[in-house]
Every structure is written in C-alpha cells, then in structure tokens.
Simulated scan of single mutants.
Amino acid sequence: MLEIPKGFNLPAPVKKALTARDGLVMQLAQFKAENADCEPQKRKFPRRGEAPTFIPLLENAEAQWGCEMKEAVKAGKDFPSLAEYMAPYEKKASEYGVRVKALEELIAEADKELIEAVRPILGELVEQAFTQANEAQAAWAEAMRKADAARATAREAVARFCWAVTGGRKGSISGIGWGNGARDGLGAWQTTNDGRITVESMRGLGLVNQWEGSLMLPEFEHMVYNPSNPLAEEVGLEVSRTAGSHECPACGLRVDAGERRVSCIGPKDVRHTRTTFVPKYDLDGERNRNFPKKRNNRYR
C-alpha cells in the first residue's frame, strides 16, 4: 500500500481517496479482530493424520459437540449429528474467508486509485517538502546556535563554582567532567532543591579524586548530598584538622575527606555524638582497581 508521510498539504481529491482507502483498511482490521477464531492457524506439533492448519472456531465447536452429545446420551435425549451441529459454524468460517478476500480486493482497488490521484501532484509535493526542509534546517541551525551559547554560559558557571568551592584550587575546564564523559561538566552537574550537590556530581566535576580526596574547602562540605547513604542526612559533618580518610566507628558513615579530620555530629542521645572518625592511613582499598598499590614507598 502507498503510505503518504504526514505534513503534506494534500488537495481534496487525494484526501478523499486516502480516507476511503484507510477506512477499508480499518474495517478489515476490525473484522479480523472480532472474528479472530475464524482465522486459520498453523499447528505447532501436528499429529499423524492431522491437517497442518486448523480453524479454532471449528475445532472448539467439534469439541463442544462431543461434550454435549455425552450429556444427551447420558440423559437419554436425542442429539443432532455432527454435520447438523457444525453447519452454522462452518458457514461462519466460510463467510469469514469470503469477506476477508473481498475487503482485501477493495483495499487494493482503493490503493490503486490513491496512487493515480497522487501521481499528478508529485511536483507540488516535492516543492512543499523542499520548502519545509529549508525551514526546518534554518530552525535547527538557530536552535544549535542558542544551545552552544547556553552550553558556554553553563560551562563558565560550573567552572566558577569549582573555583569558588575549592578556593581557587580547581577552576579550569580541563579535567572537569571526565567521570561521566562530559568535558564541560554539564552532564555531571546534579543538585538538589535545597542547594546541595550530589556525590556523583562531585566525582564527575573532578572535585574529589583517589589521591587527594575531596578538593572542596572544609566550610563547604555541608553542601554535599549523598543519596546512597541516608545516614548522611541525619548527622552533621564537622571538619577540624588534617588526619586522613575516615569512617565513623559507631554509625559506619564513610567520608572521603582527603587529609582532613572529620567529626560525626549526631543527636545528643546517640552513641556517635561528636565521635571523631578513625583515620585510615592505608588507602589501598580506596584506590582505583587499576591504580598500582603502594608497597614500601614503591608503586607496583
């Protein structure tokens, strides 16, 4: 069948032919859906002597005749023969095939009329498509220009944030966003509604690494949100002085704070109130699996 793409301004004769053809197609689909048990089916595992195809309507009717015949014989009543019982079902199945064939022939004729109606206006459709393609290309170019400008603005803003939150230690675009493949850091920028940045975003922006830990200044570490550790939302982090990588022995809260000492501040009646994290001097477990381990001041 001829499929006409959407978006053309078609003349009335073509619209009429298209509507007629589509109406017949819809009618055929609806008829098949309402009489699906009349559609011949292929047997998956045919037995010896069985036909390779069958009609569910007839097969179900024959099985139903067998059950009803047994009940009639048991009750001592007369019961119609198989041929008499199957007659209306066979009539419906045969009419289904005739109806489907007639609709398919009508669809083929309507499709031929549609092709004949479209052929004289192909030149007009070519001009329409050419104009639409030019307009779409111009709109796309303008959208890309605006997107590039917005990306540059956002890249500069992300770089300013990295510069400010690290006290000028990290502010260049180089290296930002390596964690998620976004060199400009836009894909790594993930924040919450309460003005915090996620741990994954810190990693993507290069604000934390396996050698130095967190590059964020201590006074800004409250801005980090860790969705994978709900306990981090229930306690505060107080940075006092340098000491190493840390883990709270009471609550198990883990923080990669570089060389800074971190205190876990929880409710007053909780054991880990103002507990200083235990520093871990052996950072081998924190390193990337591809990074060589340090043995006797040598990396191997």
Rank of each mutant, 00 (worst) to 15 (best):
L253K: 02
D184P: 07
T275I: 07
D256Q: 12
C264K: 00
D256A: 04
W211D: 08
P267H: 06
L215C: 08
T273P: 05
R183Y: 14
K280G: 08
E247T: 07
A188G: 02
A182D: 14
C248N: 09
E234G: 05
A232L: 11
A182L: 11
C248R: 10
Q190K: 13
E212F: 13
A257M: 13
F220W: 09
L253W: 09
I197P: 00
R203M: 15
R196D: 10
D282K: 07
S214V: 03
C264L: 00
V278W: 11
T275N: 07
A188V: 02
A250N: 14
A188D: 10
E233S: 15
S228L: 07
A250L: 14
E247G: 02
E212S: 14
D194Y: 14
Y225N: 01
K268A: 15
H246A: 10
I197W: 03
C264D: 06
H222V: 08
G195W: 00
F277D: 04
N209F: 08
L237E: 11
E259L: 15
T273K: 15
H222Y: 13
C248P: 00
E238H: 07
D184R: 06
E234K: 10
R196G: 13
G187D: 10
S201T: 05
Y281I: 11
R271K: 12
A250V: 12
S263L: 09
H246L: 13
D194G: 11
V270C: 14
P267C: 11
N226T: 08
G266A: 14
E233W: 11
M216N: 03
A257F: 05
D282G: 06
N209Q: 11
P230D: 06
E221H: 04
A188Y: 04
R261V: 03
T191G: 02
A257C: 12
L207P: 00
G204F: 04
L217R: 14
D184S: 13
G181E: 10
G204N: 09
C248Y: 01
W211T: 14
E259Q: 05
N209D: 15
V270G: 07
E219T: 04
L207Q: 00
L207T: 00
G204M: 03
L205A: 02
S240A: 01
